[in-house]
Design a protein around this nucleic acid. Structure first.
Length: 274
DNA sequence: AAGAAGTCCTGGGCGC
DNA sequence: TGCGCCCAGGACTTCT
């Protein structure tokens, strides 16, 4: 599932291919993937715009365009945004095609049809509520150990649920939450406010490490994820608990367990994570 | 007000 | 082999 490291990898792989090009035409095959504005305004608003740069905010891609407009993309679980040669046939899960001034195309596809696109004015990102309410960027300088410590102290929810809360920290999903908690040796069901200072320090380090390693490995391809050029990542071989129920914990050898938490599976090692 | 549950989707894995 | 069932999950809405 595209989380922060995967979205960052898409950003990096796509940006140097499409920056400077003009969006000549938009083919909207499945209009419902457009979250804002209407389908017609989306297509018309994009035509003729030049791609300036690509940013990432949490799991959102922000493609900056001329005219102070932004094409915002959320890939959810199975979404893909891929740069392809002229005349590439859309797959059966392709929902939108962006034809560029060099003849190449960017295809937005999503098997489960959960991913969304929006065309926003740069100073009105609030038109997409999820984007408006995003929390801190975990790889930014502003995300400090003290910040995490202070915030956790006043939260009564379970630590894993909090890590998945995008209004708290932006960009962590199920894979990196489980991996960070394992690395910090913290049980996912622990109450956030109950963590000791030592545990908070370990968690802070673990969050930054798993995300940075995920980016260095060009993302985790568990099933569907590929980058902006259609290439898989390699971080899946570094996973220690996610998707590894019953297999030995790399640290202590006990079988990894799967628990149910907030309707999601949580993989953890009962030996290491207290 | 916070937390839980329901919703959207399709392919893959499973049992029989 | 083939059918039906259930599960995966991010963000958003609705319910409690």
């Amino acid at each position: 599932m595209p989380e922060l490291p995967e979205v960052e990898t898409v950003k990096r792989s796509l940006e140097n291919k499409i920056a400077g090009l003009i969006v000549n035409e938009v083919l909207l095959i499945r209009p419902k993937v457009v979250r804002f504005p209407g389908p017609q305004a989306f297509m018309e608003g994009l035509a003729g715009k030049k791609v300036k740069k690509i940013d990432r905010r949490g799991k959102y891609l922000l493609i900056h365009l001329s005219g102070s407009m932004i094409l915002a993309v959320h890939l959810r679980m199975t979404g893909r945004l891929i740069y392809l040669p002229p005349g590439t046939q859309p797959s059966r899960h392709t929902h939108a095609v962006f034809r560029l001034s060099n003849g190449f195309e960017v295809h937005f596809s999503d098997m489960r049809q959960f991913g969304r696109l929006a065309l926003l004015e740069a100073d009105r990102l609030d038109d997409w509520p999820g984007l408006k309410n995003l929390g801190i960027e975990p790889l930014d300088k502003s995300f400090t150990r003290d910040f995490l410590k202070k915030e956790l102290k006043r939260r009564r929810t379970r630590i894993k649920s909090l890590l998945l809360d995008q209004t708290f920290i932006a960009g962590i999903g199920n894979i990196y939450a489980d991996e960070a908690l394992h690395r910090a040796r913290i049980n996912p069901e622990r109450t956030a406010s109950g963590l000791t200072p030592r545990e908070v320090a370990r968690l802070y380090r673990a969050i930054r490490e798993v995300l940075a390693e995920g980016i260095a490995n060009r993302g985790t391809t568990f099933r569907d994820y590929v980058d902006g050029l259609g290439q898989s990542g390699t971080n899946q071989v570094s996973l220690r608990v996610y998707g590894r129920e019953g297999r030995p914990c790399p640290d202590c050898g006990q079988p990894v367990r799967r628990a149910r938490l907030g309707g999601r599976s949580a993989y953890y090692c009962p030996g290491c994570q207290k």
